[in-house]
Nucleic acid binder design. Structure first.
Lengths: 84, 84
DNA sequence: TACGTTTATGATCTTTAGATCATTTGGAGG
DNA sequence: CCTCCAAATGATCTAAAGATCATAAACGTA
């Protein structure tokens, strides 16, 4: 069962998906994470750059975490389209 | 075989480790990634915030990638101390 | 369609990361 | 100790992110 997303391809997508699954509005997530609704809108839309701190705050509030691993391990298809 | 690190705990550490394993100086990594040596120094030391773009550039140059996944899957011990 | 809620945009201001250069500290060998 | 290279610090400047407020566009639903 796939439970990963590649960054940055689907970062905004993953965040939006996770937020919706928890029935949170951007405003809700904003209060929980300390990140502003307007910023969340941008992040979810993949518009503009973002600070690591910001995405970490969002992911934490959504009970998601970030991992690094070596690119060579595993094939692309192992992790693709998780949050289609 | 463990091949993950948790972010942000070991991000700088992971980058430094990966860089050293490839026998690259910070200056080398700088040219390859387009990120300045001074910035790399900060990132590796975990000093100050960083833009996502910057860490992605570094990770790409080191053949590392970033993944998101739900925090609940798997136990901490599965991924701890990979880049001790 | 009209209302209420959610999301997107737009403007301004503040803060901070990153570029850039110069300097310094720290190690490893000679 | 003295070089040489690598890494860290420090100052200044520019660009970009995020805070903040206000408003507009979208979307669902009664």
């Amino acid at each position: 069962m796939k439970n990963f997303v590649r960054i940055p391809r689907d970062l905004g997508h993953a965040i939006r998906q996770a937020r919706r699954e928890k029935n949170l509005t951007q405003a809700d997530l904003a209060t929980r994470s300390g990140v502003w609704q307007e910023t969340i809108s941008k992040v979810e839309a993949g518009r503009g750059g973002t600070k690591l701190d910001t995405i970490l705050a969002l992911l934490a509030a959504l009970d998601l975490e970030l991992l690094v691993r070596t690119r060579s391990k595993g094939t692309a298809s192992d992790f693709d389209n998780i949050f289609d």
